[in-house]
Design a protein around this nucleic acid. Structure first.
Lengths: 229, 229
DNA sequence: ATATAGTGTGTATTTTTTACACTAAGTAAT
DNA sequence: ATTACTTAGTGTAAAAAATACACACTATAT
């Protein structure tokens, strides 16, 4: 298959921006690096692409190795290719994002010594990140802001069963503004991707809210909202 | 600056999908290759990224070398990273698109022997393309479809001065469907980015249409249309 | 003068978006 | 059991946006 090898002009890496929602907070998954450069710094989970895997496969593998998470569907959103973005040489990085339900259950355990640990960190209290990862994160946040306005993708952040107020909280956190309760409910239900359950919220010291779940089938049929001519 | 070179795991290339509108047709810029692999095939203008240029810079340079075009603002839209997409080895490619006004004036002249020629080709009569370029093109077309519904970016395809009917033609070609004339005009003017000129279309054997031009300042302020909550 | 071909325009209807405030239900404390 | 507290849950009117729809105008060519 390989006749003439192309010149290798840059290494290629993956960086992952994983958003999670927990305890009313929007969080992002970071690792504490155990290798130079930026040893002991916080950074996005990322590493070099392998020679025998597609970039999509690579993203899943790298995320798994650094955090122990698997079966996370991530979407590619941008490739960062400034010449000096990596201090040790030319590395072009392909960025992925995903939105995730956090449940406390899944423990984060790096499977390699490349990361000391992986941790969910509130986006409002981000530490200084290595490389150009702050920039990559910023673009990722922009991306999901646009995204949740087109597809009601934010359900991925929620537990299996959730209340409408929780959904609204997620939207408000991502968009960074308050929304009207009645209008929000009308709208979100109008997408037709939520199924009302016979069940109520438990363990609260006030009127329990109805639980809903997300209908993946109907969701799959939804496409972006667009200007109509 | 470089302390430890990262492993080179893949080469990185750029491919450009340039859309142009001319003579009522939506066209795309292709080159006829003069090098293996796919010698004598049509392909998207593309080549390897240089070590001392960002991917954005690279895209401009490569386009220039293969077609003679310069000062084209291109936007990155996706990175294709399947393992075997290039028959000679691992090459991950970053795809860019742009929309361009065609005027016949600018001649296309490859500045390197890598391409025999560059030519605008009607998207309805695309030849078989080398590599996975058909796929890259398809994704690019999807991208601009979504794009023109959010920003009235389609003006980039039109000459300096144009009629509303021309604008409508472009939209109909890209979206692949007929639009209502009165509603289209109402909508497109409502964006407030068109300036009506005192001038009329020339050289037609029927009532001449009013010419408009595009107001870049107002355009810059426009952002995507979004779901409101 | 007439045929032709594209230009240019308005209104009524429907749908979507927005703004806005009170009652209902469950828990906890007394 | 009454009360206080806290969040859940609901409707309507007004404004804005989207849609559907048809004919007269005007420049040119013959």
């Amino acid at each position: 298959m390989k006749e003439v090898l192309p010149v290798f002009n840059s290494a290629v890496s993956i960086d992952c921006v994983l958003f999670g929602f927990d305890n009313g907070e929007l969080k992002i998954l970071l690792i504490e690096r155990n290798e130079e450069p930026f040893k002991d710094w916080w950074a996005l989970p990322g590493n070099l692409v392998g020679e025998d895997e597609s970039v999509d496969q690579s993203a899943s593998r790298i995320l798994h190795e650094l955090t122990g998470l698997s079966d996370i569907y991530m979407e590619q959103y941008y490739t960062f290719g400034e010449v000096s973005r990596h201090p040790q040489g030319r590395v072009i990085t392909v960025a992925y994002y995903a939105m995730l339900r956090l449940g406390g259950d899944k423990a984060l355990k790096p499977l390699t010594s490349y990361a000391k640990k992986a941790q969910w960190i509130n986006v409002k209290e981000l530490p200084k990140l290595g490389f150009d990862h702050q920039h990559i994160f910023d673009k990722g946040l922009e991306k999901i802001k646009r995204r949740i306005k087109h597809l009601p993708i934010a359900f991925e952040l929620l537990p299996e069963k959730f209340t409408l107020t929780q959904v609204q909280n997620v939207y408000e956190l991502i968009l960074g503004k308050k929304l009207d309760k009645r209008n929000f409910r009308k709208k979100i239900l109008s997408f037709g991707v939520l199924k009302e359950l016979d069940e109520k919220q438990k363990g609260v010291s006030f009127r329990a809210a109805t639980l809903y779940k997300f209908d993946r089938r109907k969701y799959a049929k939804l496409f972006g909202k667009e200007i109509s001519f």
